[in-house]
């Protein structure tokens, strides 16, 4: 079957459902009393809180390259990073509610001087995605989500190196896209990503255990327990 444009490959989805089945399987064996968590809405059917369809398609395609599904460890798609990004952009982070957002602005100031664009993160996604898609079309013939994986990697590298000379107001785009992707991968699952605590299991982070008094003196011995989440998932 051909992969659908703008969506991760079918193989990824199969891997994703296999991963959640595995999670459910483990839960069923070790904690029979606990009801299996209802399967989450497939990403293809997820109704974003703030991202428009083209933006959602871009985020799905981009995070699938930033943290790909092949190789060891889960990818951004199986861990539902796009859901995390949508929710963050719809909330205080997207609106820059905590930040000082009063002019005058100097968006072209040295990057060392921090966030200096008048745009908030949501506005940056909204304005940068079409700019980047246009660039992909002009340079590679198709919008980002429709490119093959190798060309997508090339395009993201160009974006990271700012080869397209994006206007300074949008300069933070690649930086926040990558940061948000990693945040969604590693944050507590209650924020929508890190589904099944899969990223924590992969690297060996015990999540919200937060109590290691008897382990301090066990030097150079690998900690044996899997993660727990804030809402009480056990892995």
């Amino acid at each position: 079957m051909r992969d659908l444009p703008g969506l991760p490959s079918r193989r990824t989805f199969l891997k994703a459902s296999a991963a959640s089945a595995a999670v459910a399987g483990v839960a069923a064996v070790s904690m029979p009393a606990e009801a299996a968590a209802p399967a989450p809405t497939p990403l293809t059917e997820y109704k974003p809180d703030c991202l428009k369809p083209t933006e959602w398609a871009f985020v799905m395609a981009a995070v699938a390259r930033l943290i790909p599904s092949d190789g060891d460890g889960p990818g951004a798609i199986e861990t539902r990073v796009p859901v995390f990004i949508d929710k963050q952009l719809a909330g205080d982070f997207g609106k820059a509610s905590d930040w000082y957002m009063v002019g005058p602005y100097e968006p072209a100031a040295s990057p060392l001087r921090g966030w200096q664009t008048p745009l908030n993160p949501l506005e940056i996604y909204q304005q940068a995605i079409p700019v980047f898609d246009d660039w992909c079309k002009a340079t590679h013939g198709k919008i980002f989500a429709e490119l093959d994986a190798a060309t997508q990697d090339k395009a993201l590298t160009s974006l990271q190196k700012d080869e397209m000379k994006i206007k300074p107001e949008l300069r933070e785009f690649f930086g926040i896209l990558l940061a948000n992707t990693k945040e969604g991968y590693f944050a507590d699952p209650m924020y929508g990503g890190n589904h099944g605590m899969a990223a924590w299991k992969y690297i060996g982070f015990p999540g919200a255990r937060g109590s290691y008094k008897e382990w301090v003196g066990k030097h150079n011995v690998k900690y044996p327990l899997g993660p727990v989440s804030i809402s009480g998932e056990r892995g």
Binding site: I67, G71, D72, F186, A187
Partner: peptide, 24 residues
């Protein structure tokens, strides 16, 4: 905490397959 404390050797890519391999 892996979201803000993740040391990787210089030369590890900041994203993609190389990054994922690096964190593992």
């Amino acid at each position: 905490q892996p979201g803000h404390t993740m040391a990787l050797p210089a030369g590890t890519p900041s994203w993609g397959a190389g990054w994922k391999k690096g964190i593992g």
